[in-house]
Design a protein around this nucleic acid. Sequence first.
DNA 1: CGCTCATTTGATTGTTATCAAAAGAAGTGG
DNA 2: CCACTTCTTTTGATAACAATCAAATGAGCG
Lengths: 255, 255
Amino acid sequence: MLNLNQHGVAPCDLLRRRLEAVTGRAVDGLGDRALLDTPRRTIVFGADLHAEGAPRAEAWLVVGGVAGQVRLLPDGRRQILNLRLPGDIVQNDGQDSLVALTPVDLVDALPVVRELTEGPPQSSLRRAWVAALRAEHARLNDQVVRLGRLSAYERLAHLLLETHERLFHVGLASANAFHLPLRQEMIADLLGLSVVHVSRTTQQLRRDRLAATRSNYVTLQDRDRLADIACYVSRFAARPASNRFERPAGVRAAG
Amino acid sequence: MLNLNQHGVAPCDLLRRRLEAVTGRAVDGLGDRALLDTPRRTIVFGADLHAEGAPRAEAWLVVGGVAGQVRLLPDGRRQILNLRLPGDIVQNDGQDSLVALTPVDLVDALPVVRELTEGPPQSSLRRAWVAALRAEHARLNDQVVRLGRLSAYERLAHLLLETHERLFHVGLASANAFHLPLRQEMIADLLGLSVVHVSRTTQQLRRDRLAATRSNYVTLQDRDRLADIACYVSRFAARPASNRFERPAGVRAAG
DNA sequence: CGCTCATTTGATTGTTATCAAAAGAAGTGG
DNA sequence: CCACTTCTTTTGATAACAATCAAATGAGCG
């Protein structure tokens, strides 16, 4: 099964697939390897991606692992604002810290961000970048709805569907299973719940034969019913079948 | 007391003050009246700002009233994603509808948005626009934290502080009071609570002598303590005192 | 005054948090 | 391979918070 820290997908492929997923069309002009073929930087679990003393890049492409923007309240309560998965480009927003929720592998994305933001206004790359920003914004809105109006059960179902879809589109999930190396404590902080309740809710989803989680691997047993329960709406562009990226080696159908 | 639907602030002043508030410095080059001196469009309560048959502008400046981006779930649950107050520029994002929560006055902001987005990259206007987008994003993050990790009491306190600050910076609030023409039902949908609980929480804030709401007017009686309770952090730039905009006529100290 | 809509109140239920402790995993060194 | 440690998940019991239901009060308006 695919592992988020050890997969064979090249950085430029991750980014290209992400952009193709949000635009729904082929993305050319990323220059294959050149722009992202920089040395990897590895962040240890719990460390800040934008800590002092780090290389000076202002934008990183997540290549492996999971990061998250974290808001810490004075009394110790924590809210994880979003997850940053392989294929995501992360930039420091100056408000909240960006923390490695697992070991995280990064490559410098500043050159490619320049390419994406400074090309001619109607270029394929710039439009893909705008689409990516819009998708990210839509996911943030989804997070608001999740926290504001969904029950714990629905929240967890929604999160699993969203995460699966994001990973699937960069080739890091099979049709209905994926690697999610997060402790329940982090899922709790992401969904605004307590650890204990995340544990109970996870088991409830398993008992209902909707989603089974065992040691960091999630299997979605009934995506349609989960989507129905969680009011899940895809934030990816409908993509013409002829345009799909090729399955990367190593992705198998879920067991 | 200032009314959000009948105030004497000109559209271009609203926008200028908003931009000055997020950048912390004077904003010139908006061309005074010209770019925003278009006929007003009035949206009736409950209607969609981007409804069919409307004029074709893709960006509007809110001049009066309150709008909000609304997500409606299939079973009738509602989540208001954010509030759009006078001085805000709203654009259709294609996902969620933008609804008038009170009667709303708009002017076409397409010309001024072009000005803000298409000038030279380092121009004062473009940087102000970027700062405004960042502030909006930060507020969306605040909304996530509010829903995810704050209690009902804290959520309401936080919302009142944020709304006061936003209105104050465009000259539509006095030092600690403002007009908030929203029904409790809308505050409930914004804060992920039930109407009944909003009612109870409002009264609790009044009993604690922190914030008093009576018929759409809110008085913040102890901003410091409210901010402490709600973990409130300002999303506006610290502004040198010498740079403050002049108080508009009609703003008095709160009673 | 009487209508309608919004807010408030009271009673009850349901959901989720908290606390405490047990069980399970994973790694370490003997 | 086993004892030992540490971390994570699970379980059970209880409490706090917020939702729901139903009804009363209040405010605004013709």
